[in-house]
Design a protein around this nucleic acid. Structure first.
Lengths: 224, 224
DNA sequence: GGGAATATTCCC
DNA sequence: GGGAATATTCCC
């Protein structure tokens, strides 16, 4: 009897040691296995067991040994080989390079029923994918709606911002105008001075903290 | 020889009249056809040729006559029947209800090669779909990133708006404070009156248009 | 050291 | 998915 390949042995051990169940595990039926976390599988499991952390190479190995890749209802990959089954170590040595999981030898007579079965499986997978795609499309529409909403919100916000600016400008102008109106009739020549002074002081560009009260610049009496 | 069905004849004419090439057309190989614009196909072509504008009914007809639906590289549906080929009118009458495009009669011996061929086709289609789906997923991630960026922008904008408001408020308070400082030392009792008056007039809640200049309320001399 | 098996990568 | 090139390991 041929020796079991290191790759196959490693793979079986990875699954049987149960250290990596959250990363790689048997399916419920124990005839397949799946990888739930590709990144961790590369970084933790492959790093420990193989010479490469490239999951593509792992897939290549699986194909070389005749594993078949299926997709479950969540479109996760599930790997299958008729001699790679939990608890059936005695069959592992039958897994040989270049041999398919379903055909004994390349060139042998096809089993029509097998193909018809596979055919049905494939069609089912296709239908599932089409269904899944529809879901994705639905999701896309939702994204679009959200984006539209965001854009609308942004436009509103921008308008609000502009309006506020205009409003403030008008308000400030009005305040000065009111002030002018109030004093205008009484001391026109002083008014000019006051306004100039005030404008200089209240100019928004002036750092506010530096403005200090100082009565001396005022050129008129303290008593009316 | 059996008469060609009206549906098949209509379908053939729709394709051969070339009036609807942007809506429905032969594939390059002329052995299949595809619909590029389902809406227009319903509204224009089906309305004109059939008693219904429901594309699902059209699909049903195709299935009844044994057409097979394939998906091209863009995952558009392509319809195929071995006797429905551009230029081969002589075969149209062979297209009969309830007969598959690949099998002569239900229950007849399967053609193994045909099934193997179909198998390969299905696998190819599946791979294409998986690839396409990956692209969609990638696109999704891009969408997500864009949305995040937009939302961040909005948050910044909102904060900016709030800051502007606070800034304006502080500025306005400062202006009044400066004004108070300027006059405070000279006429404290008058100041109170002036401030009250000004506050009343410049209160943003007061409709600006209604504020009119009026010197009479001022209870002091016009000359210092 | 080197043939052969196995693993990995490259690329169609 | 798989052929072919390349890298690595095993073993004489």
């Amino acid at each position: 009897m041929q020796k079991t390949s290191k790759f196959i042995l490693d793979l079986y051990n990875i699954l049987e040691c149960e250290d990596f169940i959250p990363i790689i595990n048997w399916t419920d039926c124990c005839k397949m296995f799946y990888i739930s976390d590709n990144q961790k599988f590369q970084d933790i499991v492959m790093k420990q067991y193989f010479k490469t952390s490239n999951i593509q190479s792992f897939y290549r190995q699986l194909r070389i040994y005749g594993f078949k890749i299926k997709r479950n209802s969540n479109f996760q990959k599930e790997f299958h080989h008729k001699y790679f089954v939990k608890g059936q170590q005695q069959n592992l040595s039958k897994i040989q390079k270049g041999k398919s999981s379903t055909e004994e030898k390349y060139g042998e007579i096809y089993n029509v029923n097998q193909i018809i079965k596979e055919n049905q499986d494939l069609k089912q997978q296709l239908n599932q994918m089409i269904l899944f795609q529809k879901k994705i499309m639905k999701q896309f529409e939702i994204h679009q709606t959200i984006q539209k909403a965001i854009v609308n919100k942004m436009i509103k916000l921008t308008n609000l911002l502009n309006n506020e600016r205009i409003h403030h400008t008008i308000l400030n102008e009005k305040k000065i105008e009111n002030f002018v109106n109030l004093i205008d009739g009484f001391q026109p020549e002083l008014l000019v001075l006051i306004i100039r002074f005030l404008l200089k002081r209240i100019d928004p560009k002036t750092p506010i903290n530096e403005i200090q009260y100082s009565p001396t610049p005022f050129p008129f009496n303290t008593q009316i």
